[in-house]
């Protein structure tokens, strides 16, 4: 069950492709992360506000709220504006992801050595104070 409390190792992932989910679940699990998946941008926003995950990964092509709009909404909300966001998409949209406020862009398909490393480095790059404040 998803945690209701801040967890420094919980990642929220908005992804609809079952194969991508399985790969993320497996390799992030191997790296010590807990992963919660949602199907659409609206659910991602609501879960982010509620559980405030360590990091959010989102595809752009999502129903209800697309991944880029999700980034902007997360950045506009004081509760979620400091959570790092990775846009992980089949679309070549690094520029648009940056403009929307994402911290990094990764292009599909999934390669664990790149994906897991990028997430670990983004988390490590977060100021400790900001993390603590976020969890307060």
């Amino acid at each position: 069950m998803p945690s209701q409390h801040p967890d420094t190792r919980t990642l929220l992932i908005a992804e609809r492709d079952q194969n991508v989910r399985e790969l993320q679940q497996y390799f992030l699990g191997e790296a010590g992360f807990a992963v919660e998946f949602v199907d659409d941008g609206q659910a991602a926003l609501e879960r982010a506000q509620l559980i405030r995950p360590t990091l959010i990964v989102t595809e752009i092509l999502l129903p209800k709220i697309d991944g880029l709009a999700l980034c902007r909404r997360l950045r506009d909300d004081p509760l979620t504006r400091d959570i790092p966001v990775v846009v992980f998409s089949i679309l070549a949209a690094a520029g648009r992801a940056s403009e929307a406020g994402a911290n990094a862009f990764l292009r599909k398909p999934f390669v664990e050595s790149i994906f897991v490393t990028a997430i670990q480095e983004l988390i490590a790059a977060q100021p400790t104070g900001a993390m603590e404040e976020q969890w307060a």
Binding site: L106, T117, A118
Partner: peptide, 17 residues
Amino acid sequence: MGIAAFPDVDIDSSTGD
């Protein structure tokens, strides 16, 4: 898998492929 880390984060893309 392509990668673009934005200016405030320095991701070493030499790890992996």
